[in-house]
Design a protein around this nucleic acid. Structure first.
Length: 491
RNA sequence: CGGGAUGUAGCGCAGUUGGUAGCGCACCUGGUUUGGGACCAGGGGGUCCCAGGUUCGAGUCCUGGUAUCCCGACCA
């Protein structure tokens, strides 16, 4: 039937795309490079938002909202920043349309040219720091801990659903601090929030580390990141946190009076995760039958499918099913009872597997007779028959077990995808034959990193926080190195 | 922005030498079905990407646009 997914081993990219369409997460839109996030996909994003928002508030942050449009002049105030984003900015030049002279539709009114063009934000540092100038006068105003949930636009040449779209949804935190140490601590704190969220909530194991200068955010002094490993052996940056030093404070003249009455520039951070996390989620857990969702993120955690022949059967089955449904709902479990008679049970089984619903309960005449139900778990595809007595507790424990199991499975896979290379031959062979992270020595220069990228398409994903000091020779140049960094081909 | 391909029903496609548009899925109606994507019967749905041109006649040939996809350079 038409719902079959392309298996991963045949074409991983096609599998990814098929899955998104068939699980009803998102679709391409009439606008090049922009996607429509459909209700089921958006429900997953809302779960991500809710949990992250809770964690941001818990660490003292407040939400605010800054404009979509940024005056062109703002962007050019920080040299590295503008350099980093200039090539992918959408620009608003006019503010009015008029009827076309030939009567066919509308055209841009040339007389309505903006005096200063507006950039559609690719990120909000500039508009935010321009605003912070007025908010910060004294050390008493610090720290300033703000987050915003927003859309941003980066005019990408090649796009892929969730992984890289011209417009995407994200959150961006922007904080101001009195001291360098405090700002660094904030950037590290938020990276830890991301890492903990990724692992506990999304069941995605990540490696924390620092970006090399080449991969650093434009305008940052230091970029921290969490890196995840996808099933096809490619790495994916799942979140970043930046220590911005005083770069934006200087560019936007944001100073404060210290306790001692001296005037100083403030220290800044910014940090973000985006709808890209949904791409990471898909490529970490899902299989050839479709999406696999960790219970914490699943819009539907349990689905109940009744099985029956004829009306009498249905009534008996329905009574039990409704009872189970009510009990699970009362227990705070997101449960759906699918009693549609327009689709056969087999159709429903496949549909909910495609959508990654963690647990399916099937109830038929046989089960009614024996006071049991059939339970199928999505992650392992195992089916068991269990008693109707104590079912709610059983389900609750099973949800926890699924969460744990898929995380452990992903972690075991990730661990198996970290290799070491000590020679160039070994390095390139591992990249081509196995993929994954390759731990190797690097001489610390931008030129070498660039050269390795040209030769192999692999980049330094991060210098891990837990890097062990170790004398060695650079994989490419043979020059001295004091520790290994993680290379990978990446999304 | 370079290289390649493709635009025909909601989706996936076929359409011969130029002769007035079809298949599968989906959809609608009725019936039989229901423990892993049911079956039968009937039905609806088209600016054949757009604009010119050749021709008695163009989905098909020619010219020019345009859109999308794939591969490269750039990126969360």
């Amino acid at each position: 039937m038409a719902k079959e997914l392309t298996p991963r081993h045949i074409d991983y990219a096609k599998w990814y795309n098929d899955l998104i369409i068939k699980a009803d997460l998102a679709e391409n839109s009439g606008v090049r490079g922009c996607m429509v996030i459909k209700p089921y996909g958006y429900a997953i994003w809302e779960k991500i938002q809710q949990e992250l928002d809770r964690r941001f508030k818990e660490t003292g942050h407040q939400n605010a909202y800054f404009p979509l449009f940024i005056p062109k002049s703002y962007l050019s105030k920080e040299a590295d920043h503008v350099e980093g984003f200039a090539k992918e900015c959408a620009v608003v030049t006019h503010y009015r349309l008029k009827n076309a002279p030939d009567g066919k539709g509308v055209i841009v009114d040339d007389e309505a040219r903006l005096e200063e063009e507006l950039i559609v934000r690719p990120t909000s540092e500039t508009i935010i720091w321009d605003t912070y100038r007025n908010w910060i006068q004294s050390y008493r105003d610090l720290p300033l801990l703000i987050n915003q949930w927003a859309n941003v636009v980066r005019w990408e040449m090649r796009t892929r659903l969730f992984l890289r779209t011209a417009e995407f949804l994200w959150q961006e935190g922007h904080t101001a601090h009195a001291t360098r140490d405090e700002a660094i601590a904030e950037a590290e704190l938020m990276l830890n929030v991301y890492a903990d969220f990724a692992e506990r909530f999304m069941a995605i194991p990540v490696i924390k580390g620092v970006k090399s200068p080449n991969e650093r955010f434009a305008g940052a002094e230091e970029t921290y990141c969490i890196e995840a490993m996808m099933q096809d052996g490619k790495a994916l940056q799942a979140g970043t946190s930046h220590f911005l030093g005083q770069n934006f404070a200087r560019a936007f003249d944001v100073k404060f009076a210290t306790k001692e009455g001296k005037e100083e520039y403030v220290w800044a951070t910014s940090w973000g995760v985006s709808t890209r996390l949904i791409g990471a989620l898909i490529m970490t857990h899902s299989d050839d039958n479709g999406l696999v969702l960790p219970p914490t993120l699943a819009p539907i955690q349990v689905v109940i499918v009744p099985i029956y022949r004829g009306r009498e059967d249905f009534e008996k089955v329905n009574e039990v099913a409704v009872n189970i449904f009510e009990n699970l709902k009362k227990a705070g479990i997101a449960v759906k009872y699918d009693d549609r008679d327009t689709h056969k049970p087999g159709w429903k089984f496949n549909e909910y597997e495609l959508k990654g619903v963690p647990i399916r309960i099937a109830i038929g005449p046989k089960d009614i007779e024996n006071n049991q139900v059939e339970i199928a778990r999505r992650d392992t595809l195992e089916k068991v028959v269990v008693s109707q007595i104590g079912l709610t507790d059983y389900i609750r424990k099973l949800l926890e077990d699924i969460q744990e199991t898929i995380y452990e499975k992903a972690r075991a896979f990730r661990d198996s995808m970290v290799s070491s290379a000590d020679t160039w031959e070994e390095f390139t062979r591992l990249l081509d034959e196995k993929g994954g992270f390759i731990s190797a020595h690097w001489d610390g220069t931008s030129e070498t990193e660039e050269r390795i990228k040209e030769l192999t398409k692999a980049t330094i994903r991060c210098i891990p926080f837990d890097q062990k000091p170790e004398e060695g020779k650079c994989i490419l140049t043979g020059k001295n190195s004091k520790g290994r960094v993680l290379f990978a081909r990446a999304y």
